[in-house]
């Protein structure tokens, strides 16, 4: 056990899985010689060689398609899309092929593909380097969407994603890259589709995902000073959704706030609100409140701070929930 950054936890996860399984390979722009735009894949080329760690041209559609083909025929590709905003260039391959291929071929193949990509704000880099697109992918049958909330989660969830037989969109939270927590040096897995109660409380349930988990945990400490005990559920995966863990918490606290960095319409929060309305309506003492970014593109520079949600927004949302909306 040692203090490890989110960045190094990701590297360690890839390293361990490449050592474990000769079918795992990594491709992407700048992943090999330069070790990744953010150093996430540093050292892997030297260790595993150029067949398994490969730089690619800037051709998102081709490299994702290559990954799908290789996955369908027995390898375990990790394809890096440098920023999630660029994933739209590979959308046909992901949405029409990775997601549907098992179904359309009647179960002849499975697609153990991981598309790793940096998502979210934090670098103040504007609308083409900052989005969180989990709901775009969660909407498509056949895909899984993973959003690790700290370094411990990042390692365990990435290792599970690489071993998973289905295509996974793995959203690395760029504002967490340098954040350190205790991470075991050994092999451990965190199952996909199992949420985690990060803090217990009796007054309100806050379901958070990705970067919003750390904002929420800080908000919960602040709320505790006022005597409000929030239960914080880290959803971990936007798809599959761990309905049981979320509903059990809502039934206990009778209030629900959902926090994510993407905008509200058609988002993860809308899905969780619908889940509560369908399965736990009579347990709710207040309307469900969503904490999200504003419905705009993400501007460059410090203006980002105005658009994206933070700790303050969560505290305010909980106050509203406690007051009954």
């Amino acid at each position: 056990m040692s203090q490890l950054s989110y960045r190094r936890a990701l590297t360690q996860a890839i390293d361990e899985e490449m050592a474990r399984d000769a079918g795992v390979f990594l491709i992407g722009e700048d992943v090999a010689d330069s070790g990744g735009a953010f150093g996430l894949t540093r050292g892997l080329l030297a260790k595993y060689g150029e067949m398994r760690v490969r730089d690619t041209p800037i051709s998102e559609e081709a490299i994702v398609g290559l990954g799908i083909g290789a996955a369908a025929l027995g390898l375990r590709p990790i394809v890096e899309i440098m920023f999630m905003d660029f994933i739209f260039l590979a959308m046909d391959q992901i949405a029409n092929h990775a997601a549907k291929m098992r179904y359309m071929y009647g179960g002849q193949v499975h697609i153990p593909l991981v598309v790793r990509t940096l998502s979210g704000g934090g670098f103040r880099a504007g609308m083409h380097h900052s989005q969180s697109l989990e709901s775009v992918f969660g909407h498509i049958p056949g895909l899984k969407v993973v959003m690790p909330s700290d370094a411990y989660e990042a390692k365990g969830l990435l290792k599970s994603s690489i071993r998973d037989p289905d295509p996974v969109i793995f959203m690395e939270q760029k504002s967490l890259l340098g954040a350190k927590v205790e991470v075991p040096d050994n092999d451990y897995l965190i199952p996909l589709g199992v949420a985690k109660v990060r803090r217990t409380g009796s007054d309100v349930t806050i379901v958070a995902i990705g970067i919003m988990v750390s904002h929420t945990l800080q908000a919960a400490e602040e709320l505790a000073q006022e005597g409000i005990e929030a239960e914080v559920v880290d959803a971990r995966t936007a798809m599959p959704i761990d309905s049981d863990t979320i509903l059990n918490s809502v039934k206990k606290t009778n209030r629900l706030v959902v926090a994510h960095e993407a905008p509200a319409p058609f988002g993860f929060g809308a899905e969780i609100a619908a889940l509560a309305a369908e399965k736990a309506l009579y347990y709710l003492d207040a309307p469900v409140i969503r904490v999200t970014s504003k419905f705009t593109p993400i501007p460059v520079g410090r203006s980002e701070d105005y658009i994206l949600p933070g700790k303050k927004d969560i505290v305010e949302a909980v106050h509203r929930a406690i007051k009954g909306g």
């Binding site: 290559l66 990954g67 799908i68 290789a70 390898l75």
Partner: peptide
């Protein structure tokens, strides 16, 4: 057009 990237994967295997 989508077949070409998929075929790259088959060749890479």
């Amino acid at each position: 057009g989508a077949a070409l990237p998929l075929a790259l994967g088959a060749a890479f295997v």
